[in-house]
């Protein structure tokens, strides 16, 4: 039963990583940049949910919606102010800017909310699920996290396959200039991508803090880095890759904590990443470039 319980917890943690990884992978696929401030958008989302639920006393779902709206606007604003002026700059300049934005968000949170850690109340208040005659307990947060992740994956696949905006994203991710020649507004598409990524970050933040209820201005950075790892693991730029990478990473992390050592679990996670990249440099579902010249 322990094994099953670890597996479920791993899948749940992995679901959070997957939702965050989607933000990294979509932005990378479309804007060809690593948005290292993505993790800190998660932290902002957590604080908003925390403030709205704790101080304003609104129901969790309203708090999450509030965080989604604010994070979406924040993500689009960051893109417009910090990244858009660098559209034709070297990727290194964009990377350094992203790290700068990350510190800016962390320090703003430090200034506004202080350095002391806040204890986050779970956004899910449903009874836990008892299985196998009470031998296996699945917390409602765990269950909701997995379901939310699956719904997001399905909705996103539908959006990309079936809507015009989704098709525009595909085209821009392949070739920005050629997409423009088809009449696609590449800037608007990039902005939309940031909006979706940041909206998902807010949801992921609420779920992550519900499972690990300690909130500080640095809360976003570790899940951010792990989700980035998950995105690379699955093949950066690939949406199913982010999903698979996220889940695998979560499961490996929980198993490492349970069976090896909780201090070493992060080291093990990153060691697995290094091994995967040595064997498959493009990640598990990384795009093969099959272009004849």
């Amino acid at each position: 039963m322990d094994f099953l319980s670890y597996l479920i917890n791993g899948i749940s943690l992995g679901s959070v990583y997957a939702i965050i990884a989607l933000g990294y992978t979509m932005v990378y696929g479309i804007a060809k940049m690593l948005n290292f401030a993505h993790g800190d958008v998660i932290m902002v989302g957590c604080y908003i949910v925390f403030m709205m639920m704790g101080k304003a006393g609104v129901p969790p779902i309203v708090a999450i919606l509030g965080a989604v709206v604010i994070c979406t606007v924040l993500g689009m604003g960051i893109e417009k102010l910090a990244y858009k002026p660098l559209r034709r700059a070297t990727s290194l300049a964009v990377l350094i800017t992203a790290i700068g934005v990350s510190y800016f968000l962390q320090n703003s949170a430090l200034l506004i909310f202080g350095a002391d850690s806040k204890s986050f109340t779970s956004v899910v208040n449903l009874p836990n699920l008892q299985l196998a005659g009470g031998k296996l307990t699945i917390s409602s947060t765990t269950l909701v996290t997995v379901i939310v992740c699956i719904v997001i994956m399905l909705a996103l696949s539908f959006f990309i396959k079936k809507t015009k905006a989704g098709q525009a994203m595909l085209a821009v991710s392949e070739d920005k200039d050629a997409a423009m020649l088809m009449g696609i507004n590449a800037n608007a598409t990039i902005s939309l991508t940031f909006a979706i990524g940041s909206c998902l970050a807010a949801i992921a933040g609420a779920l992550f803090c519900s499972a690990y209820p300690v909130l500080t201005p640095y809360t976003g950075s570790m899940p951010g880095i792990k989700a980035f790892t998950a995105a690379v693991f699955g093949g950066i730029g690939s949406i199913p890759g982010a999903f698979i990478g996220g889940i695998l990473l979560g499961v490996i992390e929980i198993f490492a904590k349970a069976y090896v050592s909780s201090q070493l679990s992060d080291a093990i996670v990153f060691a697995v990443l290094i091994i995967v990249l040595l064997v498959r440099p493009t990640g598990i579902l990384g795009k093969k470039i099959h272009e004849k010249v």
Binding site: Q167, L170, A171, D175, D177, M182, I184, I289, E291
Partner: peptide, 24 residues
């Protein structure tokens, strides 16, 4: 505008490429 080097969307199918042409 048919650009130099054709610039077809390599990972999309022929059909999807054509549909992209009618995007507007």
């Amino acid at each position: 505008h048919i650009p130099e080097g054709r610039r077809v969307f390599a990972n999309l199918s022929v059909y999807e490429n054509l549909k992209m042409g009618a995007y507007t």
